[in-house]
Amino acid sequence: MGKTMNLTLKVWRQKNAQSEGRLETYALQGVDADASFLEMLDILNTQLEKRGEEPVAFEHDCREGICGCCGAVVNGQAHGPLRETTLCQLHMRHFNDGDTIVIEPWRSRAFPLIKDLVVDRSAFDRVIRAGGYITVRTGSAPDAHAIPVDKEEADVAMDAAQCIGCGACVAACPNGSAMLFVAAKVSHLAHLPQGRVEANRRVLNMVAQMDREGFGNCSNHYECEAACPKAISVEHIAKMNREHLRAALKPAGS
């Protein structure tokens, strides 16, 4: 056991989308500094269940920072204070004994609340459905070496492709914009020769869907990049804007 700490938690509790929510205060003693943030929530939930109370609902799965399930606004910051880190990879050693920690769900018009810290991020799936893919039928691909890809382009594509779809960018943005999420996919595919063929169609359709979902506009706050656990750069937003402009100016069919 490493060093332990006593904490005061203020956790957003809300039964469902219709009911009123509020911050509930819990005292938590003897939390190991080596525990992860979600393990700290596990400890809280165990205590609640033992008292016959409902545990705090929060999403989590891999606990390795890659599935994109987890996320909450911690003391006003999406995924908490540590850069390039999902909530599950944040450890309690970054807090101090006696701290008060405020834990709230992602807040955005396009992410309706489901319960406690759980929100509905299905808007992201609908944006991907609108064009976040390369149309290739299983079995019809040419040999993998048929088209060489510039290594530097492939590396930039990979930088963008790392997006885990957690939604922190939307939660962090004062406008609730999903530009970084959408741009990451547009830019990933636009940097690869395989993705160029339907690049125009893709960017127009994905941006149109993004707008339909009720995400806000981008006004260059860069909060998204700061909150992104994969450090995806806002340069991809610039890339998407260029792609969008070019596609919008092109006559249909060309």
């Binding site: 893919y133 993998a144 890809v149 290594k151 990979m158």
Partner: peptide
């Protein structure tokens, strides 16, 4: 071997060498 072909065609950004190959 078919899997790699399929995934490259889908845009999976596998690691590459400077010559552009995998």
């Amino acid at each position: 071997v078919d899997i790699i072909d399929q995934c490259v065609a889908q845009g999976v950004p596998f690691a590459r060498e400077y010559g552009g190959l995998l």
